[in-house]
Structure formats: C-alpha cells, structure tokens
C-alpha cells in the first residue's frame, strides 16, 4: 500500500477513460436507436402508442440515473438474471438516453413548420415518404446541436456506472486512490480527463449552433 503515483497508475486511469468512452458510445448508439423509435412513437397517429411512449419518457425522466443503474444491476440479479456490470450499465444508460434523446428529437421533428407537412401531403406523399424525404432531413439539421450538447451529459453520467462495479474512469480513480490515499491529486486528474473529453464536444456543439444561426433563413420560408 501507499507509494507514489507512477506510470502504471496513469495507464490504469487511461484504460478507465477508454471504458468511459466505450460506455458513452454504447449509450449513444443504443439510446439513439431506441430514442428514435420513442420520438416517432411520441407523434404517432395512434393514441395508445403516444400515451405509452409518453409514460416511458416521464418514468425515466422522473427517476435518478443512479436508481436506474441499481435496478439494472441488483434488481435483475434479485429476480435471477445475472448480468455483467457492462451489460447492466449499457442497458441502463440506453434506457436513460433514449428517454431524453426521444424528447429532444420529437421537439425537433415538430419544429419543422406545419405547412411543410401540408405541402408534402398535398403532393400525395405517404406518411413514411413525408417523414423520410421532407421532415427528417430538416429535423436533423435542427437536432444536431442539442444532440451533440446532450452527448456531454452522457459522457459525464457514465461516471455513475462506477456504483455497479463497472471500471470506467471514475471507478478506476477510486481504485487507484484506495492504494495511494491521495484523493485530491487523483480526483483532480480525473476531473481534467473528463474535461478533456467533454470540452471538445461542447465547442463542437457551439460551433454547430452558430452555423445553424447563419443558415436559419434556408430552414423555412416565412
């Protein structure tokens, strides 16, 4: 025990950081796919589908991510399903991200002006064609800045996966600290690494927003 921070500790933290990125990517892809379905379900012509998806969003948004992670790991174990920390964290984050991205994207789809839907309808396009060829291409442009912005939240929130024993950046920091007892130095390093991962995303999001602002006029005619 004890000793000084050395290259091996830093390598261990680096490995944790890679898992943080890995978990973020899993959450983004899984949450993105489920979130897209949620966004479409929220504006479905079928009332039952709209209600079911709204209930899902409300349930997830009204529950702390920490609780969802505990439910995913210990809850499933309690009913006899043994899941690995990675699977539990990946699944929990997917459910969490899907609820938020679903709501963000629903808003973006609905912010495409209604006359655009009507013009597409007037040309006899089917609902799927209207969505794919007219609405989504415009909605994606609106959705890009807030989606990139939300990715920052995902990266930071993966730190909660440490509670189910998944060794990402936060957990690897705790492990290193358990042997070195230098919490300030170690958590400062971890903070810097998180910042180094999130700041480029924030900058990217801001740049996208500025570019959107310039191109606003070609989004919708009056």
């Amino acid at each position: 025990m004890g000793g000084h921070l050395n290259i091996n500790h830093l390598m261990f933290l680096g490995q944790g950081a890679l898992w943080t990125i890995g978990l973020s990517v899993i959450a983004l892809i899984g949450g993105g796919i489920v979130g897209f379905v949620i966004a479409l379900a929220r504006i479905s012509p079928l009332k039952s589908v709209r209600i079911a998806s709204a209930v899902y969003v409300q349930l997830i948004q009204g529950t702390p991510l920490l609780v969802i992670l505990f439910l995913g790991y210990f809850g499933l174990a309690a009913i006899g399903l043994k899941v690995s920390p990675l699977a539990a964290a990946g699944a929990s984050l997917t459910l969490y991200v899907a609820a938020y991205l679903g709501e963000i994207w629903r808003g973006c789809i609905q912010s495409v002006p209604k006359p655009q839907w009507e013009a597409a309808e007037g040309l006899a396009l089917s609902r799927t064609q209207r969505m794919l060829k007219v609405i989504l291409p415009q909605a994606i442009r609106i959705a890009t800045p807030p989606t990139v912005g939300f990715m920052v939240q995902i990266v930071k929130n993966t730190s909660l996966a440490s509670v189910v024993g998944f060794v990402e950046l936060m957990r690897s920091g705790q492990i290193v600290n358990n042997s070195l007892f230098e919490p300030f130095a170690i958590y400062a390093i971890i903070a810097v690494i998180y910042f180094a991962m999130c700041y480029p995303l924030s900058l990217f999001s801001q740049r996208l927003e500025r570019r959107m602002g310039r191109g606003r006029s070609n989004l919708a005619p009056a």
Binding site: P115, G122, V134, Q138, A220, P221
Partner: peptide
Amino acid sequence: IVFQSYNLFPH
C-alpha cells in the same frame, strides 16, 4: 394545391 407561403422544401 398552392399555398400562400409557397412551402417549397428548403433542403
């Protein structure tokens, strides 16, 4: 049908 606000697809 043709509308007051043209409603061409901007993209």
